[in-house]
Every structure is written in structure tokens, then in C-alpha cells.
Amino acid sequence: MSFMLPSASPSTRSVVGVADDLCAALRGESPSLPRAQSAVLVVIDGLGAISLRGHAGHARSLTSGMTKRDVAQTVFPTTTAAALTSITTGVWPGEHGLVGYRVRDPERDVLVNQLSGWETDGLDPLTWQAAPTVFERAAADGRETFAVGLAAYARSGFTRATLRGAAFVAAASPEERVEAALALAEQHPGSLVYCYLPEVDKAGHKHGVASPEWVAALELLDGALSVRVPPGIGVVVTSDHGMVDVPYHRQVVLEEEHLVGIRHVGGEPRMLHLYRERDADLHAVAARLRGDLEGAADIVTREQAVASGLFGPVVRDDSLARIGDLLVIASGVRAVYDGTAEDQRSRGMVGQHGALTPEETRVPFLRRGVFAS
């Protein structure tokens, strides 16, 4: 079976390298952004470009002047752990190694959570994610760097893996976070400031895209980002991924008979990593799953995924060992669940992501301040 990646325009910007482009703008060397005194990178978790355009009336500040070109392509899988790390390191998941939500640690043969499980699952942020961050590179050039986010994230393993090199500044509300980011940029000329806004993602997971709660979160962020940008400051607003709603009747459940030969089920419902038993015939397992999930998901081997460039142009050996023997990439608005798992709480999620639909892969790329000129 051959696997074809969804097509994207060669001119479409990738979220990989966006932060480095901001640093280049500070030096006056960016090919696409004007020179700036300081730069602010705002990441709105979970906001797809298609969803944003579809709710432009609730985000008039964000969508003001937005054109079809004001988009970027995120990485695969379209999940926070992989995409945020690509944004802050400037490399693809195949290089930084965060190739999914939950993956197998090949040395211990256990599943680990790469978003929230650093402490409980025993991951060392400095070695599990060894790629230098943009903040470390900026600091090596003598620049001050800051990361503004919720206090709960200040000392997390994921923060140490992806934001190391930046001074963390905690602020509670979206308005306070944006205000703090702009103030830091103004008070520290030549600095790079990162600002993280997770409200839309949280509302989408719990209530769904376009729910009253999701719209309220979008309006909240739009208001926070409607403030005046100080002179000389350049701002880019983007996202790590978009989201689709998966109704309960579109959930597909894998029971024991479907998972014969599978040792571990990782990933997340729209992009599963399947790790086979050592004596299982990979091609036989893949053929069976393709029959079981026909029309609901694509079944792709690790080799096919790497050859197709799904994880980027370079896949390090340690990253390769974390990728499932088989990937289950959900089609349309479906999600595939491990029915044998003890914890079934994720089946309550409405908004989901991880796969390859345009709603998940296309994110906003909006310029403010001197970058808008």
C-alpha cells in the first residue's frame, strides 16, 4: 500500500522556523519580516485557521486584514507536544523526538506521556528533548528571552524541555499574559518574548469547536490581543494545531480481537502509535487493521511514514525508535480508541486533533506591530 501526504502549497509557511525568523528580524536579516526592536511570538493553542475564519465575527481583531496568505502549516502529528516543540526548537518532530502525545520509551518498553508525564513517567527534559531551543540560541547571541504563561507550567518538565533558556514569567489571565509580553519586549530592547494562550484548546476539547464556551474563549483572546503594540515591537500570532469535533457516534473502538499482535497503543485517538509484539507479523497485522478500519483511518507503517516525510526531512535514530510500528491516522471526523484500556476518560473529549485534515494542519500566521508593515 502506498501512502500519499495531503498536498500543501510550496509557498505555505511552516511553523518550523518561525521563532528563528523572529530572531533574524531582530538582526534585520529576515527574508519575510521587517526589522524589529524586540519580537513577541504569541501561540494560541488549538486555533486552526479554518475555525478562526469561520468565526471572524467573534475575533474581529485577530481577523482584521487577514488574507488567505496569513496561514502556516503545522507539523505531524498535529498535537501540542510535537508542534509546540517544533515551534520553540525550529526543527521537525523527527529531530526533536517528541513524535506524539504518548509514545513508547524503547529502553524501558513502557508508554510515556510527552506532554504532562515528564515527572511521573521519568523523562529527563535535557536528554529526551536534546535539540537546542530558540531561546538558548538567542541567549548565545547575547539576547534576553522570556516565556510568559500560566504559573502551573513554570516548572513542568515540558517547559524545561521546550522553553529552556527563557526566563519564565507567570501571569493569570490572557489579558495579563499579553500585557506582560508586550511590556517585557518594550523594556528589554533586542529581546525575544514567547506568550502562550491555551484557553481555546481547553474549551474545544471539553465542549467542541463553535460551542458557546469555545466562542467565549476566542472572544476573550481576541480582546486580549486587541491592545496597542508599542512602537518598534514586532508581533507574530500563530498556533500549534487546529481541531475538529468528533461526535460520539463517529468514535471507532478497537477491542481485543482487533489488537492481536499489538503490545502497546500510544498516540491519541486521531493518531495512534501501535507497537507490535516481537513475534507478530507486521504486514499481517497491518492488513487486518486496514480491513477493520477501512474508511475510518489510514494504516501506515513506520517506514512509510518516514519515507513520506511525515516526521520531517530528518529522523534521528532515537526518534525513530519512539515511532509506532504502525500509525493509525483517522480520516474525516473520526477518532479511534483502545477499547481495552482501563482509562476511557478521553472518550469524553469533543474537539480533537492529531491527524492530517486541513482543519488540523492549517494555522493562522498573523503579523502585528512593525511586522504588519
Rank of each mutant, 00 (worst) to 15 (best):
F76P: 01
D45W: 08
D70M: 10
A72C: 11
P93V: 06
T79K: 14
V91C: 04
R69T: 09
S51G: 03
S86Y: 06
T89C: 03
S51L: 03
D70P: 13
V71I: 15
R60S: 14
L84Y: 11
T85K: 04
K68E: 12
D45N: 12
V91T: 12
D70W: 12
G54R: 02
G48P: 13
T79D: 12
T79H: 13
F76H: 01
V43C: 08
W92A: 09
I87G: 03
H58Y: 15
P93G: 07
T80Q: 10
D70F: 05
L47S: 10
G46F: 05
V75W: 02
Q73W: 06
A72H: 05
T89F: 01
T74Q: 12
M66D: 08
T78D: 03
T85W: 02
T74Y: 02
G46Q: 00
V71M: 11
R53K: 11
H58I: 08
G48C: 12
T74F: 11
M66G: 09
T80E: 06
I87A: 04
S86L: 07
I44P: 07
R69G: 10
R53F: 00
A83P: 01
W92D: 11
A72Y: 04
T74E: 06
G94W: 00
H58C: 14
H58T: 12
G48T: 11
D70A: 08
S64I: 00
R69K: 09
H55K: 15
T78P: 03
G46R: 02
R69M: 04
G54L: 01
I50N: 15
A83K: 05
H55P: 13
T85N: 00
T89L: 07
D70G: 07
T89D: 00
K68S: 15
G57L: 14
F76D: 00
I50W: 06
S51D: 09
R69S: 10
S64N: 05
A56M: 14
G48A: 14
V71L: 07
M66H: 14
F76Q: 00
G94F: 03
P77R: 08
G57C: 13
L52S: 13
G94N: 05
I87S: 05
A81G: 04
P77F: 09
A82M: 08
S64K: 05
A59T: 09
V91A: 05
D45S: 06
W92C: 04
A81D: 03
A59H: 07
G90L: 07
A72M: 09
A82K: 12
G54V: 02
A82V: 11
G57Y: 00
G90D: 01
I50E: 15
G94I: 05
G48Q: 09
S86P: 11
S64E: 08
A72K: 06
G90K: 12
G54D: 14
G48V: 10
R60M: 12
L84F: 02
I44E: 02
G54F: 00
M66V: 12
S64Y: 04
V43R: 03
A81Q: 07
S86M: 04
L62G: 15
V91M: 03
T80R: 04
F76A: 00
T88Q: 04
T67W: 08
L47K: 11
R53T: 05
T80I: 10
T78Q: 01
T67G: 14
L52E: 04
T63M: 06
V43T: 09
T89W: 09
V42S: 06
S61W: 13
T85L: 00
P93Y: 10
A59R: 06
R53M: 07
P77C: 07
S86R: 00
L84K: 11
G48W: 14
I50V: 14
I50K: 15
